[in-house]
């Protein structure tokens, strides 16, 4: 069980004023649950992931997993692939995988399963955006993460590429029983992926709706059921979801 309890998280903004990013935010996720977090730009979604992932310790609150602060086996996928350009695809994955021959074999198998077997020794700069995301996804899963944090990982990709990556994510997630926090501002993406969707308000981010998604898997973002659920939500909570309905990937960064 992942338990997130943030009383207050603030940081100085560009003008030196204190900006309260999150306040009174608390939620839990079961082991192996895929929780999507949606909210308007600037509501502190990225900040939330940074706190949960231990990248930002300056916070009034705490994060525990099974009663302890999660320290190991955390995967992280950012908005950009963030691969090391001087390492080959395989070495990028090996960077986090460990050093034994067994780790190496595991990394190779995973990359091959993700249809990256032909580019193991290529440098990221020579790959397409979609392939780079796939490598980043492999890097996240090669450590068998107990917790995977994803910060709008599929923005600025064309729809078929993004869908393919979403399917890969679901396959890997189901195999590894990983707890996933998936941040997005695309409601349809959230509904098509999540076991649950948590809605955050504008800054300071608070949890305003915690919605279980009961639709059967496999689903896709174009399923009529997903679309129906989306329009139903928009009708029920128009004020809550203002700014989310477009479902367009604009690639904005809300972690100013």
């Amino acid at each position: 069980m992942l338990e997130v309890e943030i009383n207050r998280k603030s940081y100085p903004d560009r003008g030196g004023q204190v900006h309260i990013a999150l306040s009174g935010l608390s939620f839990r996720a079961r082991r192996g649950e895929l929780v999507c977090i949606v909210g308007p730009s600037g509501c502190g979604k990225s900040t939330l992931l940074n706190v949960v992932g231990g990248l930002d310790h300056d916070v009034d609150g705490g994060v525990t997993m099974g009663g302890v602060v999660p320290e190991h086996s955390i995967g992280f996928m950012f908005q950009e692939p963030r691969l090391m350009p001087w390492l080959t695809v395989l070495d990028n994955v090996m960077l986090v995988a460990g050093h034994t021959a067994d780790d190496r074999r595991r990394a190779r198998e995973l990359l091959t399963a993700m249809e990256l077997g032909d580019v193991l020794h290529a440098y990221p700069g020579s790959l397409s955006g979609g392939m780079q995301r796939r490598v980043a996804l492999a890097r996240a899963f090669v450590i068998d993460p107990v917790l995977l944090l994803m910060d709008e990982p599929f923005v600025s990709l064309d729809a078929p590429t993004a869908n393919r990556l979403r399917n890969m994510l679901i396959t890997l997630w189901q195999r590894c029983n990983t707890t996933v926090l998936f941040v997005t501002h695309d409601l349809r993406e959230a509904l098509s992926l999540g076991d649950r969707v948590c809605f955050l308000s504008g800054a300071p981010g608070q949890l305003v709706l915690d919605l279980p998604v009961k639709l059967p898997r496999p689903r896709s973002a174009d399923d009529p059921a997903v679309l129906a659920l989306q329009s139903e939500l928009l009708q029920e909570h128009p004020e809550l979801l203002a700014g989310l309905a477009s479902g367009k990937d604009t690639g904005e960064n809300d972690n100013a």
């Binding site: 231990g54 990248l55 992280f76 950012f78 963030r82 090391m84 986090v96």
Partner: peptide, 9 residues
């Protein structure tokens, strides 16, 4: 950003 990756992992 890349140092953040190192920290995250």
């Amino acid at each position: 950003d890349l140092l953040q990756v190192a920290k995250a992992y």
